[in-house]
Design a protein around this nucleic acid. Structure first.
Length: 423
RNA sequence: GGAGAGAUGGCAGAGUGGUCGAAUGCGUUUGACUCGAAAUCAAAUUUACCGGCAACGGUAACGGGGGUUCGAAUCCCUCUCUCUCCGCCA
């Protein structure tokens, strides 16, 4: 959510943001609604002020006296009028809130113009894509793949996109999660094991509700949502709280399974491990002082990049253009790993600065040097999503004998230097 | 899952229909005293929204929502959470 004052004082900034994000939104209507809300609010508050003052007078009078009864009559008519006005105000307010929630966050000035994938700026590349194994092939075509990654039985037991990881497959997943968490810990993030179901208030605060409702799995009777990312329970940890300024930045990481319905996905995007309904991910999250958030974004990106470097996977960093920025993000980097078998880039991390956009919605603040509460800036990034990293490892490191050589950093976690598919 | 008790400001804890944004204590901040500190004394000490250049004014908030009433922290309903006891369970 944006600061409502911005709508009144600098609507042109919002117009520019809408244009840069290539959204379709009638700001004039929002402005009109805002004006109406404020005028109705003023009327209701004036009536309530009158009601309070008459009430004070009544307290001085003898109960049941003629003067008292006259005031009762006045209060009755005030009550009637107030009831009507309050009804109008409530309706307007509901519409106003909805309209305010529909305003996107402002893109940072460093975000490039553009509408599609082609307009992203490649901020960095690391490693040589030509150096990957000459025997690389799409991971789902590797002989014995389904012995370690059983999609068929997952589909039987749950549905498409819920694979079983078996034997060395399961062990490699565990090794990656363990490695990611250890690395995040070394980088200064405190490990958290959060709930993986959240209530509607939490899902609303981080922006999954009301818009992206179809993206989450929802429990029928308790109305809880399976988390699509650890970002949700992590960010909501401090919802409605005021942090001491000296605690900033707060850096935390969490491993959770992530659940996404991914309605409408199809084709090569969803083959094998590329896109799943349930997958494992370590998320990095920061609550920072507003003056530090862009420096912290670079640090966050660096923390995610280091993981790929230690895994010896070629990758590139994209600075997302305005049109591909999320609704809530001010600036975002995507990390894409090279998948040698598929000959394409796979997104394994997305590092974003939300500035105060999420914090306003979740009311997460800190007490500044003047003693006044002020919104924090929130940032998050994957560090990293497991299945696509797994896909790249399997493909890029596939040897002629069918085994997969593991990067040195992973060996102590996996307990062997290579993974072998059963034949 | 069943029965009961409870939820008030940073914390503790009063308040059972009107003058209560809310006593008191603790804490915190500032000032006085002191070489300095402690103790003591004095004052200050919530947040959000609306209006205003500002000073300031107005409204709202006593777990959430709804109701009764001229008027609700106070009465009623409901939801959530916490605690105690019973049941069940990794």
């Amino acid at each position: 959510m944006l600061d409502p004052k911005l709508l009144r004082e600098a609507p042109d900034l919002i117009r520019a943001a809408i244009a840069k994000k290539h959204l379709n939104l009638d700001l004039d209507a929002v402005q009109a609604l805002d004006a109406r809300w404020r005028s109705e609010l003023a009327e209701v508050e004036a009536l309530r002020a009158r009601q309070k003052s008459v009430n004070g007078e009544m307290a001085q009078l003898a109960k049941g006296s003629p003067e008292f009864m006259a005031k009762v009559e006045e209060m009755k008519s005030l009550k009637g009028e107030l009831k009507g006005r309050e009804g109008e105000l409530k309706e307007t307010e509901t519409a106003w809130q909805e309209a305010m929630l529909s305003l996107p966050n402002l893109p940072h000035e460093s975000v490039p113009e553009g509408k599609t994938d082609a307009d992203h700026v490649i901020a960095a590349t690391h490693g040589e894509v030509t150096h990957v194994s000459p025997t690389a092939q799409p991971h789902w075509e590797i002989e014995g793949f389904e012995q370690l990654f059983d999609f068929a039985r997952g589909a039987k037991v749950t549905g498409a996109g819920f694979p079983y990881y078996i034997g060395d497959g399961a062990r490699l997943v565990r090794a990656l999660v363990h490695f990611f968490l250890d690395e995040a810990g070394r980088a200064g993030y405190t490990e958290v094991n959060p709930p993986i179901f959240v209530n509607a208030a939490s899902a609303t605060a981080t922006g999954q509700l009301p818009d992206k409702e179809g993206q989450m799995y929802e429990t029928v009777i308790d109305q809880l949502y399976a988390v699509p990312t650890a970002e949700v329970p992590l960010t909501n940890f401090y919802r409605d709280e005021i942090l001491p300024e000296e605690d900033l930045p707060v850096c935390r990481c969490a491993y959770t399974p992530c659940f996404r319905r991914e309605a409408g996905s199809y084709g090569k995007d969803v083959r094998g491990l590329n896109r799943l309904h349930q997958f494992d991910k370590v998320e990095l999250l920061k609550w920072v002082h507003p003056s530090q958030s862009y420096a912290e974004l670079e640090a966050l990106r660096g923390d995610a990049e280091r993981l790929l470097q230690k895994l010896e996977l070629p990758y590139r960093v994209l600075l997302m253009c305005g049109g591909d920025l999320g609704f809530a993000q001010a600036k975002k980097y995507d990390l894409e790993v090279w998948s040698g078998g598929q000959q394409r880039w796979l997104e394994v991390s997305s590092c974003s600065n939300f500035e105060a956009f999420q914090a306003r919605r979740a009311r997460i603040r800190f007490r500044n040097s003047e003693g006044k509460p002020e919104l924090v800036h929130t940032l998050n990034g994957s560090g990293l999503a497991v299945p696509r990293v797994l896909a790249a490892l399997l493909e890029n490191n596939l040897q002629a004998d069918g085994s997969v050589t593991l990067p040195a950093a992973l060996v102590p976690y996996f307990g062997a230097e290579s993974l072998r598919f059963p034949r």
